[in-house]
Computed example of a mutant assay.
Amino acid sequence: MKVAIVSTDGKVINQHFGKASRFFIFEVDSCGKIQFLEVRETIPLCGSADEGHADDVLSRIISLISDCEALLCSRIGSRPQEELRKHGIKPVEAPYFIDEALKSLSEVE
């Protein structure tokens, strides 16, 4: 399972979805093995007035992480949660260390 994570440092899930300027992409296999894949840069949803309508920015962000099954962030609003779910991405508020959150997520799956 691929997971997109909102983080400023790649260690802690410490950022609101709307403030994300990048997503750390991880793969968690069926045995719980965690592998870092890449960082994907984006324009943050909040404060994106210069980049077009917020709905357009949200669509671009969802497209950027559309191959992921889950998104982990410290906080997320109801509208982005709804849109992510429509695209098959499970939003999870998990303000923890990335490795802890990924292990917990793999245990649930």
Rank of each mutant, 00 (worst) to 15 (best):
K86L: 11
S78I: 13
G10E: 06
L64P: 05
D67F: 05
L84A: 06
S63T: 11
L64E: 06
I89Y: 00
G32L: 13
L71G: 00
R79W: 07
Q81E: 11
V6G: 14
S104A: 09
Q15L: 15
M1H: 09
D56Q: 13
L72N: 10
L102S: 04
R40L: 08
L37T: 03
K90S: 01
L58M: 09
E69G: 15
C73T: 13
D29L: 09
T8Y: 06
P95M: 02
V6I: 10
I89R: 01
S104M: 05
A70E: 02
V39W: 05
E93T: 10
L84K: 08
Y96C: 09
D9I: 12
T42V: 15
V57Y: 01
D55W: 02
E107L: 15
V28S: 06
S66G: 10
I98L: 06
R79C: 04
Y96P: 06
Q15A: 15
A20G: 10
R75D: 01
G47H: 06
T42G: 08
I98F: 03
V92G: 04
C46K: 08
R75M: 04
L64A: 06
I5V: 15
G88H: 07
R22M: 04
D56F: 12
E107G: 14
S21L: 09
I61R: 02
V108K: 10
F97N: 12
I43K: 08
P44T: 09
G47S: 11
P91I: 02
E82W: 01
D56T: 13
F36L: 01
L58E: 00
S48L: 03
L71Q: 00
